[in-house]
Amino acid sequence: MKEFQESFYLNFIEDDRWEYIVDGLAVTLKVTFFAVIIGILLGFLVGIIRSTYERTGRLKVLNAVCKAYLTVIRGTPVLVQLLIIYFVIFASTNVSKELAAVIAFGVNSGAYVAEICRSGIMSIDIGQLEAGRSLGFSYWQTMWYIILPQALKNVLPALGNEFIVLLKETSVSGYIALGDLTKGGDIIRSRTYDPFLPLIAVAVIYLALVMVFSHFVTLLERRLKQSER
């Protein structure tokens, strides 16, 4: 017990080392939050373009662009993408590490969200589109009022899962020396040469975040289900 107390003091209290964890957590949440927003916007845009092409044959060129994006992003590791974006694409500019991370993870997540969104749209019976069009709605109105609300409900669990993955993936941000949660724990370890507590603390915080987030997704799912019964 005494050992634990000493280790705890060394890792978190001495020199206010807990600040590494707290500041890192803030960075992780910030990067995840904005990356999720980019991921949703980009993902739905690409998913809608792809499914529109599959259903109607329109948007041929845009579909080809989207397909190339999906191939590249899903065919390379997110860490490599992060390094390329920070050290190559933004090399000559003064972009902050946080922004580079947000863009890298957002663009990466968008590819996965796009496929989730596309499969959700394609899972809606074609009769729904025909019913909407037969009433006089345009393709895009039908999409907005009729297809997307149903598709979104279907893919919500998959989307929730994708964001949990994204939250955990941001832990590689340390590679561009961004002080996220993982990096914070690692810095403490490198100062104290006592790896157990800081790394376990980091893991526990990730776990807690994921559990809270899963809980919200479940709640939301249940609320959406109520409207159908």
Binding site: G127, E130, A131, S134, L135, P149, Q150
Partner: peptide
Amino acid sequence: RHRQKMGMVFQHFNLFPH
């Protein structure tokens, strides 16, 4: 615009379930 004046009823109803 024309479809607004042409009602259609389908074999499988196609009501909006949501």
